[in-house]
């Protein structure tokens, strides 16, 4: 009953197996190139730019609350200073494992106006920075720090809670939004003008 041909290995399978065996000596080589690629990708991600999902209501209406995919570039904080009105991603000053996406409101050497309630909170940790006024108070941003705020001040944990943020915590600048597609493009300028910050120099 058994036909000898039924147990014959099909030719194409045989050929595939042969080619796999032949490529065994090349495997370490392939692994090395894969490793090189991974290392290059990692270096690119760390130093040049990466994709990031920003979730949360603090940057409404500039970034939506349910998650926008943006391009983050790391070159700007390395090569030159960030500028006022840049949208940046920084390591959270309250939790080193989290990142926050905020807008730069004021740079070092400038003053920013805050409510008296905020000034009280900041006076606890940085009493030397607060300048009291009759209606509003001012915070002087010390050297190497910036003032970060979300575009949605009603629902944002930002410098008004934790005070000026060291420039060294900034990871990168948000360049473009790529998802959702209908809103793809440059990040919109801040909703209100940045008249809050005034240069003192």
């Amino acid at each position: 009953m058994l036909d000898g041909t039924a147990f014959k290995i099909p030719r194409f399978l045989f050929r595939t197996a042969k080619s796999i065996f032949r490529s065994v000596p090349e495997l370490p080589l392939r692994g090395a190139s894969l490793l090189k690629f991974a290392a290059a990708l990692y270096m690119f991600q760390r130093n040049v730019g990466e994709l990031m999902i920003c979730i949360g209501p603090s940057m409404l209406p500039t970034l939506s609350a349910d998650g926008d995919v943006v391009i983050l570039e790391h070159l700007t904080p390395q090569l030159r200073e960030v500028e006022r009105a840049d949208v940046i991603v920084a390591v959270s000053p309250q939790n080193p494992r989290m990142s926050v996406c905020k807008r730069v409101i004021a740079l070092s050497g400038e003053k920013v106006s805050v409510s008296n309630k905020t000034a009280d909170r900041i006076e606890e940790s940085h009493p030397e920075l607060v300048r009291r006024g009759s209606l509003v108070s001012f915070i002087a941003i010390p050297q190497g720090h910036v003032w970060l705020e979300g575009d949605n001040p009603a629902n944002s944990t930002d410098s008004r809670q934790y005070g000026p943020v060291p420039v060294s915590l900034i990871r990168g600048r948000v360049l473009y939004r790529i998802l959702p597609l209908e809103n793809a493009g440059h990040i919109a300028p801040p909703p209100a003008d940045l008249g809050k910050a005034s240069s003192t120099t």
């Binding site: 904080p77 390395q78 010390p142 050297q143 190497g144 720090h145 060291p166 420039v167 060294s168 900034i170």
Partner: peptide, 8 residues
């Protein structure tokens, strides 16, 4: 650590 006031 990176300097808190003299840049990254």
């Amino acid at each position: 650590l990176r300097s808190p006031d003299q840049g990254p």
